[in-house]
Each structure stands twice: as C-alpha cells, then as structure tokens.
C-alpha cells in the first residue's frame, strides 16, 4: 500500500533524470530508444494509476466498512 504514494514522485523523478541525461549527454541511438521506452512505460504507469479503477484499492475501501 505504501508504494502507491511514492510511485508518482519516483516516476516523475526518474523521467526528469532521463530527460536531463538525454538532454545533456547525447546518448547513442540504442540508449536513446531504451530511455524513451522507459519513459513511456513510466507515463503509462502513472496514467493507469490516475485514470483506472484499482480493484485492490476498492477492496480495501470495502473492508473499511466492516
């Protein structure tokens, strides 16, 4: 449950780190592709968390009723 809170921060921090890296270090094409792929994975992770219903979360909320 705790991971939930840090993930956004971590994801953004990682994306920003990647940004800085590809902006300043001019990686080769392979590395660049890898980084961009990683960013897209992180973005999807964030968006899914933001926009999709999380069954696990709903379950926890339901348990609180009892």
């Amino acid at each position: 449950m705790t991971t939930k809170k840090v993930t956004y921060n971590e994801a953004v921090a990682e994306i920003e780190a990647i940004l800085e890296k590809i902006e300043n270090e001019e990686p080769d094409v392979d590395e660049l592709a890898e980084k961009v792929k990683r960013v897209s994975v992180l973005l999807k992770l964030c968006k899914d968390k933001l926009l999709k219903t999380n069954e696990q979360v709903e379950q926890i909320l339901k348990e609180m009723e009892e």
Binding site: L19, V29, K35, L43
Partner: peptide
C-alpha cells in the same frame, strides 16, 4: 500532474527527436 506528465512526455519526445 497530468499536464506535467504530458509536458514531460512532449519534452522527452522533442529531445529524442532532436537527438535523432
């Protein structure tokens, strides 16, 4: 936050494209 994400995405895409 969503906007920030899409800004980051745009930035990464731009930099990557420029790099390429």
């Amino acid at each position: 936050f969503l906007e920030k994400l899409s800004r980051l995405k745009e930035k990464v895409v731009n930099i990557a494209r420029k790099n390429l």
